[in-house]
Nucleic acid binder design. Structure first.
Lengths: 337, 337
DNA sequence: CTGAAAGCGCTAACAT
DNA sequence: ATGTTAGCGCTTTCAG
């Protein structure tokens, strides 16, 4: 039926173990045999049976990726991350099993304890995530995207969201702005203590304080209607406002729109900086000065960390990707009038 | 180390096969033994080894899901579908392996021939998809989302996009509109012959012709800027236009905006129907009359089809989910005057 | 540098 | 209704 390693061995005139070693490179094989084996494999169309391999080697070469489904997360960012994880995993000869957040701790336990996967990547980690104790005791390595409040014994990676919040404010301060607002993620994101939103907030507030600026914060639902409302309220309550930081990918376009409706030109009357993927920042009517959310790099680095852990190499507990601000057309000097 | 089936057997005072059968239900077990086995399993925290199971049973209980990455597809729709597939698969005790479109035919062959997966779900199928011949010869069942031009020997499922296009036009015709426009997907979607876009177009055109309406078609990039441009051109070139059908989730809000800017009230001056997920239709400033893109139902049905095929049951080659139009605030009678 | 053979943990005949 | 046992296809000692 399907061709197996003994078929290849016979065809190449070697033993099964030689085929196995030729494939894994775990012991020296003469160039000649290796070539014969390779030829037989190609000719017969041999594919090692994944299950048999997993059983014999106790390695499935599969990673679990736990993706969030909940409200308030920006879907394209998740998707970009997921794709990058799969691509990076493939570069390391691993596959990726998709696990939904919904499955909770039981889901993690299931895929880990059944040896379906060798390691896990967990997205959207909360400050006090119920899965942390489990991840610590699981006998398989894991990498978290995001930082819980107690990250000891775990491996975490994320964009440096605090620095991202700061650098946006620093940029506005450097342009002479004195009154700034943060238009943030939907309220539920703060309520459930997702760390990245909090960290942006901290960075924003800290930098504003450091610069002696007046600052205000407004969470915002991910709908155009909410965007319009927040824009209006912001201007009404803070007439002196000349700079805003937006950490909410879903409402960027509606916000631009709303500010325009309210008679403000961007950046002449109002400077805007955003935290969002670069392609979004550049596709809007006014290209936005922004700090990029580097999904692809995040996914790749998460996989790299996991691979090193699987190799038994030590990795840092915390990895923060630096926040880089790219100035574009949406920010300029405050008009002194 | 980790507990195995023989440990459970010993602990319960039965043979390994009894544990196996108690788990699979493939042969009658007395209520008493079943209870003892269940207790031992719980007590010892036993999880069958996935690889061993796959090897012995030649069933991995894993499905491959091939997701598109390319431009022009609406990410939330893909994500919703993916989540629904995973959830449905779990309900059938299966897991889902994520495969990127990028891996192409080789990727399909790899996961199928290595017995990593039992079956495949392939999204974003093109009219002349290069993977079709492979899928036909693969010894594992598959289900395609979308309809290629030659679907014989394959199992396909999708929303009835043609009917969706028609029903939108029918609705507008019923309201007295005589000049209608289709604002479609990005040009690249048509160029690469993705079937759903073409089918909407056919339905739209056919219905317009049937009703004796004047119709026009405009593909549209998925950016706000493109939306504004298309809106303007549409009105300039077709001043008598009173109804539009939008098949492009990404530009719905910008379009509403643009039409408003151009002095049109919706629906008083212009009626709009959309093809998009329901939650999008209802979250816009004007709730849109729309035909829902039922990602969740599609995912669930795709998995159901696959499960039936895995059970050796016959399934229809083609499954079209009916297109339902939900009237909302964005359409009304044409003003006669 | 290569072979032989012992499992890996489970399922599914084949028994009874 | 349950037990015994022979593999499933591969990796990895152990030998040479």
């Amino acid at each position: 039926m399907t061709v197996k390693i003994t078929d290849v061995a016979r065809h190449a005139g070697v033993s099964p173990s030689t085929v196995s070693y030729a494939l894994s490179g775990k012991r020296p094989i003469s160039a000649e045999t290796r070539a014969r084996v390779a030829a037989s494999i190609r000719e017969l169309g041999y594919r090692p049976h994944a299950g048999a391999r997993a059983l014999a080697s106790s390695k499935s070469n599969v990673l679990a990726m736990v993706v969030p489904l909940r409200a308030g997360i920006h879907v394209p960012v998740v998707m970009g991350f997921a794709v990058s994880v799969v691509t990076s995993a493939r570069a390391h000869d691993h596959d990726v099993l998709l696990v939904t957040q919904e499955e909770g701790e039981e889901g993690l336990r299931r895929v880990a304890d059944s040896a379906l996967v060798d390691a896990l990547i967990v997205m959207d980690v909360q400050l006090d995530d119920p899965r942390l104790p489990l991840l610590r005791t699981l006998d398989r390595p894991s990498v978290l995207i995001g930082f819980p409040s107690a990250a000891d014994g775990l491996t975490c990676i994320d964009l440096d969201f605090r620095a991202a919040g700061e650098v946006c404010v620093d940029h506005l301060a450097g342009l002479g702005h004195r009154v700034v607002g943060l238009i943030g993620s939907p309220p539920e994101v703060y309520v459930r203590q997702t760390s990245f939103a909090q960290r942006v907030l901290q960075g924003f507030t800290a930098a504003a304080t450091r610069h002696g600026m007046t600052s205000t914060v407004h969470p915002c639902e991910a709908t155009p209607a909410a965007a319009r409302e927040v824009a209006e309220r912001l201007l009404r309550e803070h007439p002196a406002l000349t700079g805003v930081v937006v950490h909410n990918e879903a409402v960027l376009d509606p916000l631009l729109d709303a500010f325009e409706h309210l008679g403000l030109r961007i950046p002449a009357d109002l400077s805007i900086t955003a935290l969002c993927p670069d392609d979004l920042a550049t596709s809007l009517r006014v290209p936005l000065t922004s700090v990029a959310i580097p999904s692809a790099e995040l996914g790749e680095q998460a996989v790299n960390l996991l691979m090193r852990k699987l190799d038994g190499a030590p990795v840092p507990e915390a990895t923060l990707l630096p926040a880089h601000l790219t100035p574009r057309a949406s920010t300029t000097h405050r008009l002194t009038g």
